[in-house]
């Protein structure tokens, strides 16, 4: 293990309580996977519906370990120039312009082309050295002296080529740059890849990662999360709210409400000084929870049955 700082997580329970302190409530599965990722030094591929806290997990890990979080948002057309490194063209150009005059001095007294070029060679690849290298997230993560958490967000949005390009990084924590050579990680970063499953990732990528699937939370976990994230909320409202959301998830909707939406809704209700859920209150604030007109309509239609179910319990 090359990580042996004071806050090193030793057991699953420690990770769990550590995450809880940074405001991220998780179940055993998540804590266990984090434990393995840390011990085996493997990247973690996190999948799940949007809004269940995939990105938050990376943030919480960074916070817990007191590591820097480096984030790379993936999108269609992302290439290595934006992900790994880029030469500072502008700076290179500017320097050549500024140094033009110097060039005359340098080459003074040189006879013929061959001698001039020899002189220039003495200076080596000045314009292709580290000073002119613009490190992008991946390189930053490799070069960092302190431990880092590297979050490669929504990898499924990136192209197939980019996925293959990541393989070297994920398996050996190193990257080959043609002009400089192979760059090895000074300390192995903790790598998270998140995916919303818009397309299937390649087997090669999956093979190199641990896999974590975060589903919608059960009622107990969701109550805990609300309690931590929205501290001011009364217990009664919290119970009703979570019960309602859990019921709504059972309906056939275009987009199921996730944890982030539940939190937003809880905050909204808190702002409105609500004491308990009423059909009118729900109807007027439903657009916080559901993001499709059709879904809102459906839930409004089913409101009576939902409430009946809720208050029977």
């Amino acid at each position: 293990m090359n990580q042996s700082t004071g806050s090193s997580p030793i057991s699953v329970d420690q990770i769990k309580s550590g995450f809880a302190q940074s405001g991220y409530i998780c179940n055993d599965d998540i804590a266990m996977t984090m434990f393995l990722a840390y011990q085996l030094e493997k990247p973690v591929l996190v999948e799940g519906p949007p809004g269940v806290g995939k990105t938050e997990l990376a943030k919480a890990t960074a916070h817990y370990l007191n590591y820097e979080l480096i984030r790379l948002q993936c999108y269609e057309g992302l290439d290595e120039a934006k992900a790994l490194y880029e030469w500072k063209y502008g700076k290179q150009l500017l320097y050549t312009q500024v140094l033009k005059d110097k060039l005359g001095d340098l080459l003074k007294g040189a006879h013929g082309l061959a001698e001039s070029i020899d002189r220039l060679h003495e200076f080596g690849d000045i314009f292709y050295s580290e000073q002119f290298l613009e490190p992008r997230p991946l390189l930053q993560a490799l070069q960092a002296e302190q431990g880092t958490v590297l979050l490669i967000d929504e990898i499924d949005k990136a192209d197939h080529e980019f996925e293959s390009f990541l393989l070297e990084m994920l398996s050996d924590y190193q990257i080959s740059v043609p002009e400089i050579g192979t760059i090895k990680a000074k300390r192995h970063p903790i790598v998270f890849l998140t995916s919303n499953n818009t397309r299937e990732l390649s087997d090669a990528l999956k093979r190199r990662c641990l896999h974590l699937f975060i589903p919608f939370p059960d009622a107990k976990l969701e109550r805990n999360i609300i309690q931590t994230r929205v501290p001011g909320i009364s217990e009664k409202l919290q119970d009703q709210l979570v019960g309602f959301v859990q019921e709504v998830r059972k309906l056939d909707l275009k987009k199921q409400p996730a944890i982030s939406e539940t939190i937003d809704w809880a905050r909204t209700l808190l702002l409105l000084h609500a004491e308990a859920l009423t059909p009118e209150l729900v109807a007027s604030t439903l657009n916080v929870l559901l993001k499709h007109e059709e879904d809102i309509g459906n839930v409004k239609d089913d409101m009576r049955t939902l409430f009946n179910k809720l208050f029977k319990q």
Binding site: E200, L210, F213
Partner: peptide, 9 residues
């Protein structure tokens, strides 16, 4: 084992 062996939902 699930984290290391099973890689999709």
């Amino acid at each position: 084992l699930s984290a290391t062996l099973a890689k999709s939902e």
